[in-house]
C-alpha cells in the first residue's frame, strides 16, 4: 500500500503520476485518476443568478493540518475499499483559469474500488481538508462559500457506508 500526499505550489505532470502509480505492483488491474481544473467562471454569492469572469484564484491552506486531514481521508477510504496505491496532490497559492488544481489517482485490483476511493477522497477533500479559495472577479476579491451540493456529496458516504 503506497500513499502519497502533496500540498504544493508547483504544477504536476499527470503522465508522471500515472506512470508512478501503475509501476507499484503488477497486481494492479485498474487505475482511476481525477484532475480538477480552475474554471474561468464563478457565480457571486450575493448575486447567484449572474456569473463573473474569474481572473485568478488564490488557495490558502493550514500547513501541517491539511496534510494530516488528507491522510485521514485516504486512510478511511482504503479501509472501506482495498487499493494498492493512492496519490493526492493539491495545489495552493495563485492559480489562473484552466490550470490544474487537484489530482487524485488510485490503483486497485478491479475498477469498482478505485472509482469509489477517488470519489470518496474528492468529496471529503472538498468538505474536510483545510483549504480556502479566494477569487478575483475582475478586481473584486471574494472568499468562496461552500456549496450545498458538495456537502450533500460528502454526506452520501455516511448513508450507505456498507455499499
Amino acid at each position: 500500500m503506497s500513499i502519497n500526499i502533496h500540498v504544493q505550489h508547483e504544477d504536476f505532470d499527470l503522465a508522471a503520476e500515472y506512470t508512478e502509480l501503475r509501476s507499484q505492483t503488477s497486481k494492479i488491474g485498474a487505475v482511476v485518476t481525477f484532475t480538477g481544473l480552475v474554471r474561468d467562471f464563478e457565480r457571486l454569492q450575493d448575486d447567484p443568478t449572474s456569473g463573473r469572469n474569474l481572473h485568478r484564484l488564490t488557495l490558502q491552506h493550514y500547513p501541517g493540518m491539511t496534510e494530516r486531514l488528507i491522510a485521514e481521508i485516504v486512510d478511511e477510504a482504503v479501509q472501506r475499499w482495498p487499493a494498492f496505491g493512492v496519490t493526492v496532490i493539491h495545489r495552493v497559492g495563485c492559480l489562473r483559469p484552466n490550470e490544474q488544481i487537484v489530482f487524485v489517482g488510485v490503483t486497485s485490483e478491479h475498477r469498482e474500488n478505485a472509482f469509489k476511493i477517488a470519489e470518496f477522497v474528492m468529496d471529503y477533500l472538498k468538505t474536510k481538508a483545510t483549504f480556502w479559495k479566494q477569487v478575483d472577479l475582475n478586481g473584486q476579491q471574494q472568499w468562496i462559500q461552500p456549496k450545498q451540493s458538495d456537502t450533500e456529496a460528502a454526506a452520501k458516504w455516511t448513508e450507505d457506508s456498507d455499499e
Binding site: Y62, H90, I101, A129, T130, W132, W143, Q145, P146, D150
Partner: peptide, 10 residues
C-alpha cells in the same frame, strides 16, 4: 489556536 471557516478546497 486556529479559527477555521467552512473549507472550500478541491
Amino acid at each position: 489556536i486556529a479559527f477555521l471557516p467552512p473549507v472550500t478546497g478541491g
